[in-house]
Design a protein around this nucleic acid. Sequence first.
DNA 1: CCAAAAGTGTTTGGATTACACCCATGG
DNA 2: CCATGGGTGTAATCCAAACACTTTTGG
Lengths: 248, 248
Amino acid sequence: MYSSANVSERQAQAPSLAISTVIFALRTDPGTGRSEIWLPLVRRIRQPHLGKWALPGGPLGGRESLQDAAARNLRETTKLEPTYLEQLYAFGGLDRSATQRLVSIVYWALVRPEQADLARESENVRWFRASDAAGLAFDHDEIVAYALERLRGKIEYGSVAYHFLGARFTLAQLRGVYEAVLGRHLDPANFRRQLRSARDIAATDEVLQGGRNRPPRLYTYTGPDQEAPSPGPAPRLPAEGQSAGPPS
Amino acid sequence: MYSSANVSERQAQAPSLAISTVIFALRTDPGTGRSEIWLPLVRRIRQPHLGKWALPGGPLGGRESLQDAAARNLRETTKLEPTYLEQLYAFGGLDRSATQRLVSIVYWALVRPEQADLARESENVRWFRASDAAGLAFDHDEIVAYALERLRGKIEYGSVAYHFLGARFTLAQLRGVYEAVLGRHLDPANFRRQLRSARDIAATDEVLQGGRNRPPRLYTYTGPDQEAPSPGPAPRLPAEGQSAGPPS
DNA sequence: CCAAAAGTGTTTGGATTACACCCATGG
DNA sequence: CCATGGGTGTAATCCAAACACTTTTGG
């Protein structure tokens, strides 16, 4: 048994551990019709950084895995059910929080548009365009930037793009996902071919009616739910500098 | 202030946090002359898994970043100075340790051959061929496998290969690194060209004397010490299953 | 001179790019 | 019938693999 002083000394030394999640969804700009990346943030209701926007997160329970903790917390704070969830990075710089030593294991998630529309905003949850998410609490600006970088990397090799969309989608919608994430225009003809070979999608016999032009065919994703084993190059090093905090 | 019961309850709930490192070095097989991947392991001197071999690791100090903790611990347990150090993954499955809830933030490191030779084995530190590292404590088998996967991925895009070698090296030595990591033969002619374009190496005006054949030119690495910013595809998902531990 | 690795040149096939062209629909 | 995006075809280009060939050393 420890004395009370001994215990509080140990607690001061032992960094506290939290799980946070960067959640991405796509929204279509009503004006241009282009897809854009959005993410939900929660308002800080206590110090430090009271009132600022921050990533949803919370402590790690004793009876749940890291991924379970991320999923649970994400559900509790934003009411969202992700279709994709993956660990991003563990942030543990000394200067992350002014009031305590804090280690955050951060996940990133994708949710479908229905979810994003359904989860309406409340006083303490608001959606932001990814490009507008600045001035966040703690080091969350940099965490979001790193998550976007990972998303870009992963969409080129892996099959995460489908997790932004529903069960049936047109190739134009899928291309919209790629264009939003990569930030550049893609040739429709070549895009089609690149997917037909190697990517796991299948054409249905349905088409999407109601548009102004020729009705596009609908496709479905046939791959595994949470990503197949797949080597492929590694992510950019999120250097903690020599002894500092988050990715640069 | 908490009561003693309250405190121990909290400690039971709060998972403890440790930092471990997978250290890779290259050794040349005296027989075949081929390079092979080796790693140092430490013997467990307490329960659980007493006597088994495990990754070097220890608790996270309150006044050091995650990366500093990894570097310090690596130095203390194996006397090695890494030339490369990067975070691998945070492992936090429920069944990782029988005696306590344990979250490990794992790093991976590369050291030069001199270091690996210098750091002679002791009673509680021994080097193993990567392919022979099985039956380790905890989930360290899987962690080593995942680190190897990351190494493979990173060597193809990034410039980590140089961190296995000294300041001056021949292209044959460098090719040996790639062949050891990727596990397949590479065409010397094509290998040369791939490096000359884009990779950051420069030829010196020296050659390596003493071989049986034509003396090869020596090259130096001109890139940044700890890796340049570089997007590139993302790593394989180390799925924790739906709620379980380490990568599958 | 021979073996073997260092180093250069050339050919080839596959993948990516750019873009011309036809198809189907709403207005 | 025209504008627009859906969808197909094709030539130009780039890149990586395969391999022939020359160079330079030790024995």
